[in-house]
């Protein structure tokens, strides 16, 4: 096959290996504490990273009005008034990226007040990424290996 095709085939394989390699990196479990400040309409820090199995503690502080905190996937919530904090304690047993959202109407952009908690390794992402990449590679190969094409690629 032609040179550009060879290069592309190698790139695909390298990326697939990279994805698989990252997937296998594992981290030690520990306790993690986050002080999250809520202000219209975002959180600080807005992205928190923990490892699967970590014991996570969150202290929610409101800097202006009554804000809430609901964690997708875990279904737990708390809220904070200015001067009155909220707290959460849980084990991050589900891997993936989960959105935490404000659960108390705090202003017009309330439905968009979100942050992310990433529980690594983000196996959900790597799995789908791997599937997409795998399909791409298969599509590439079947293009050149089959005589008559009716399937994808």
């Amino acid at each position: 096959m032609s040179a550009p095709s060879k290069i592309i085939k190698i790139c695909f394989l390298l990326s697939t290996f990279y994805f698989l390699f990252s997937f296998w990196n594992s981290f030690a479990q520990s306790e993690k504490f986050f002080e999250i400040r809520a202000k219209k309409f975002s959180y600080t820090p807005n992205i928190i990273r923990v490892n699967k199995g970590d014991l996570v503690r969150i202290r929610l502080i409101s800097e202006d009005v009554h804000h809430g905190f609901f964690l997708d996937g875990y279904g737990i919530r708390t809220s904070a008034h200015p001067g009155q904090e909220g707290s959460l304690k849980f084990v991050a047993d589900k891997p993936g990226r989960f959105t935490f959202r404000c659960s108390v109407t705090c202003g017009e952009f309330h439905p968009y007040m979100v942050g992310y908690m990433i529980v690594g390794p983000n196996s959900r992402f790597w799995m789908y990424g791997g599937i997409v990449l795998g399909i791409g590679v298969i599509a590439f190969l079947t293009t050149f290996l089959c005589k008559k094409q009716n399937v994808q690629g």
């Binding site: 997708d72 996937g73 279904g75 989960f98 959900r124 992402f125 789908y128 997409v132």
Partner: peptide, 17 residues
């Protein structure tokens, strides 16, 4: 009441695939 938020990521990934 948010529903099925644990499945949100899986559903989105599946749709894209």
């Amino acid at each position: 009441t948010p529903v099925f938020t644990g499945s949100l990521g899986y559903l989105q990934g599946l749709t894209l695939v």
